[in-house]
Design a protein around this nucleic acid. Structure first.
Lengths: 227, 227
DNA sequence: TCATAATGATAGTAATACTATTATATTTGC
DNA sequence: GCAAATATAATAGTATTACTATCATTATGA
C-alpha cells in the first residue's frame, strides 16, 4: 500500500489527472522523473515514450495517469503554487503588521528555493526551475480558457488574491493590486531566466539576490512604505 | 521584380531566414498569412502545410524561406521589435527632457497598437497580438542560447538598452534599469493576455488603458519623478 | 482463492516536421 | 526573342510524436 500524500495540505484539482499520481509507486516515479527530465531537456523534448523508457514502464501506463503532457505540466505547476501558498501562509502566520507580512511574502515568491523536503517524489529545487522556464506554456496556450474552466489556475489566482489583500490592507486605495502581484511573480521568473540566457535584459549580480531586492524595493516604493 | 522593403529602416538579421520573405510575392504572402493564421489559431496549430494550402502553395516552397516555424516566429518578433525601436525613436526625437522621453517611451511600449501602415505584408495590429501571446515561445525554448548566438535577440536587447539609458540619464545611480525595462515590457504583454483570459490576475478596466497607466506610475514612482 | 485493479507488451493511426526529386513556370541577361 | 538561370509546384517519402486499443500478466485484498 502506498501512502505518499503530502504532509501538509497541498490541494490539486482532480481534473488535471486521470489517476492520482501520488497514490502509487508508478505515479510517484512519473512525477519525480518528469521533473528531472523536463529540467534537463526542456518540455519540448519531453515525451511520454522517453519517460516510460526511463522508468522501465510503458507509454500506455503513463497515459493512465495523465491525458497528455500538457496536463502533467499543469499538475506540476499546480503543485508548485499550492506549495508556495502554504509557504506564504507559514511565513506570515502570527505576524500582525501587514508591511512585514508583505515583505516576507515577496521574498517567498521571488527568491530561489533552497529546501527540498515536502514530498519524496518532488524535488522542489528542480521543480522551481521547471516552473520558471516552462510554466508559462501551461497558460500561454490555446487551451487556456478550457483549462481555466476546469480550475487549473485556481490555486494561482487564490495566491495572487491573498497577496493583493495584504496590499489593500496597507493601502486600501491602491488601484492595481493584482497587476502588481502578477507582475512581480512573473517578472521574478523572467529575470531568473534572463540571468541565465539573456543577461543584457537584467541586472543580476551573481551572489546577491538582486531579484528579491529589486521587487521588494519596487513594491515598497509603489505603496510608499518607508524602510 | 518585387520591391517590398520597408519605407523605414527595419533591420532583420539575415540568419533568421533562408530567403528574404520581403523579396518576393510568395514571401510576402507567407508573412501576411502566417500572422493572420497564428493570431487566429495559435502557434501550436500553425503548420507550414496548412499555411501552404491557405496560400495555394506547397510546404516545400515555404521551407525555402524559413528553416522551420520557430524561425518564422522569430522573424515576426524581430520585425515587431525593430518597428518598435523605430517608433520609440520617432516619439522621442527632438525631446530634450529625459523624463518626458521616458514617459513617451513607456506609452509606446505598453499601449495597444492602432496603426497599420508600415509595410503592406504586415498588419501591425495583428502582429502585436501575435507577439503578446506567442513571442515568449521564441526565447523560452531550449534553442535560446543558440538563437542568441545567431543574434535573434539583438534588436530586443538594443531596445531595452536604449530605454535603460534614458532611465540612467534621469537617475544615474539607479541600479536596475534593465530589470525595470524588461519587467515593464514583458509585464505589459502578460497583463493584456490576462485581461483576455485570466482577469483575476489583473485590474484592467475596459475602456481605460490601465496597463500604460500602471507601468508609467510604477516607473515614475521608482525613479521619484513628480507629476 | 477468486475477483478486481494495475501494469506491461505490443500494435496501430493520424499528424507533424521535415527532406528529396523532378517537373513546370517565370525572369533575366544577352 | 531565346537560352539559361531561378523560383515555384507537385509529389513522395521518412522519422517522430501523440495518442488509442487490445490483450496478457501480475499484484492486492476481501
Amino acid at each position: 500500500m502506498h501512502v505518499l500524500q503530502s504532509k501538509i495540505g497541498i490541494k490539486i484539482n482532480a481534473k488535471v489527472y486521470k489517476k492520482d499520481p501520488l497514490s502509487s509507486e508508478l505515479g510517484g516515479k512519473i512525477l519525480s522523473h518528469s521533473i528531472a527530465f523536463i529540467e534537463e531537456a526542456g518540455f519540448e523534448d519531453f515525451t511520454f515514450r522517453k519517460l516510460a523508457q526511463l522508468i522501465n514502464s510503458t507509454e500506455a501506463s503513463i497515459y493512465r495517469y495523465f491525458e497528455n503532457k500538457h496536463n502533467l505540466l499543469a499538475y506540476l505547476t499546480m503543485w508548485y503554487w499550492s506549495w508556495m501558498e502554504y509557504r506564504v501562509f507559514m511565513t506570515t502566520v502570527n505576524i500582525d503588521c501587514p508591511k512585514i507580512r508583505l515583505r516576507r511574502v515577496i521574498k517567498c515568491l521571488t527568491e530561489e528555493v533552497k529546501e527540498d523536503n515536502e514530498v519524496q517524489q518532488i524535488d522542489e529545487i528542480k521543480l522551481q526551475r521547471v516552473v520558471i522556464t516552462e510554466s508559462s506554456k501551461v497558460y500561454i496556450s490555446k487551451k487556456v480558457d478550457q483549462d481555466n474552466e476546469l480550475g487549473f489556475f485556481l490555486v494561482y489566482k487564490d495566491l495572487v488574491q491573498r497577496v493583493a489583500d495584504i496590499i489593500l490592507e496597507i493601502n486600501p486605495k491602491f488601484k492595481y493590486p493584482h497587476m502588481m502581484v502578477s507582475t512581480i511573480i512573473e517578472g521574478a521568473h523572467h529575470q531568473r531566466f534572463f540571468a541565465n540566457h539573456l543577461p543584457r535584459l537584467t541586472d543580476i549580480i551573481p551572489g546577491e539576490d538582486t531579484v528579491t531586492t529589486f521587487y521588494t524595493e519596487l513594491i515598497e516604493r509603489e505603496l510608499s512604505i518607508e524602510k
